[in-house]
């Protein structure tokens, strides 16, 4: 069963075309990573998938229906979005922040129901943020804050979760924590997760499917092990890549021209 179907999707800003004739289908319960160089339209794709932008041509279907046919409220019941690091100007507490995702379900007078409270508490537990539920968002570290925004997306109770570079400002431990959390929600709750990321190695370790976008409009969509290869990554990113294996999973390391050992590598590249 395909939860998302993208057909011949194209989008251009006034200055540049970023996506050209992209088609792919996402099975329910897949963890998909969207990778590619800066400016190829990864975030644009995320906005198209969440109806923040309208495609020039082509279509996005969620559960078999065109995305444009959903009302804002209905769509919010299908897709939750975690955007890049953002701190609101007013200091809401963690629990208030997560509760805001329930706004459209509030009872009369604009207050949450018992159900809303249970859902929020569960999201706080799952993301391990319950311990600082009463702290202000502005007083948290970047890693903690990212977990809160994921909690907020989970409390929205949608089958689909979109994330825009969820680990971009995080240290190694927090990066792994976030991906562990996402993987758990995928496996336990059966959510379909789409993450835009720059971290190919995390994508290789955690994601089932990869959408690799190249700047000339080509793209590659498929199983993670088939898409993430030295040849494809080198081609798309335009850097020398060395790759190794830890058990079944590959890892990729870029080596630049001025890197300390660059000379020794010569012009070779590939699997070590």
């Amino acid at each position: 069963m395909n939860i998302i179907e993208v057909h011949n999707l194209s989008f251009r800003y006034s200055q540049a075309e970023v996506l050209r004739n992209i088609s792919f289908k996402i099975k329910t319960g897949t963890f998909l990573a969207v990778v590619g160089p800066n400016g190829v339209g990864k975030s644009t794709l995320l906005n198209l998938l969440s109806a923040g932008l309208k495609p020039d041509t082509g279509s996005v279907k969620i559960d078999g229906k065109t995305i444009g046919s959903y009302s804002t409220k209905k769509l919010a019941g299908k897709i939750a979005v975690v955007r890049q690091e953002f701190i609101p100007i007013f200091s809401f507490s963690v629990i208030e922040t997560v509760m805001i995702s329930r706004t459209t379900h509030y009872g009369q007078l604009g207050f949450e129901t018992e159900t809303d409270r249970d859902i929020v508490n569960e999201a706080l537990e799952v993301t391990d943020t319950a311990q600082f539920a009463s702290r202000l968002l502005s007083n948290l570290s970047a890693g903690e804050r990212q977990r809160v925004f994921i909690a907020r997306a989970l409390a929205q109770q949608t089958p689909i979760l979109l994330l825009d570079e969820p680990t971009s400002f995080l240290d190694l431990k927090h990066q792994v924590n976030i991906y562990d959390l996402l993987k758990t929600t995928q496996l336990k709750q059966g959510k379909t997760i789409i993450a835009v990321t720059h971290d190919i190695n995390l994508a290789a370790q955690y994601c089932d499917t990869i959408l690799l976008l190249a700047s000339d409009g080509r793209y590659c969509y498929g199983d993670a092990r088939e898409v993430l290869t030295v040849e494809k990554i080198t081609d798309v990113f335009g850097v020398r890549i060395f790759s190794g294996k830890i058990r079944d999973e590959s890892f990729f390391i870029p080596i630049g021209k001025s890197a300390k050992d660059s000379e020794k590598f010569g012009t070779t590249q590939g699997n070590i």
Binding site: G52, T72, A76, G77, V81, P88, T97, I100, T103
Partner: peptide, 15 residues
């Protein structure tokens, strides 16, 4: 309250 988090966030929360 939802709009305090930006229009994009508010919209994707169904507002």
């Amino acid at each position: 309250n939802a709009i305090s988090f930006g229009l994009d966030d508010a919209r994707s929360m169904g507002i």
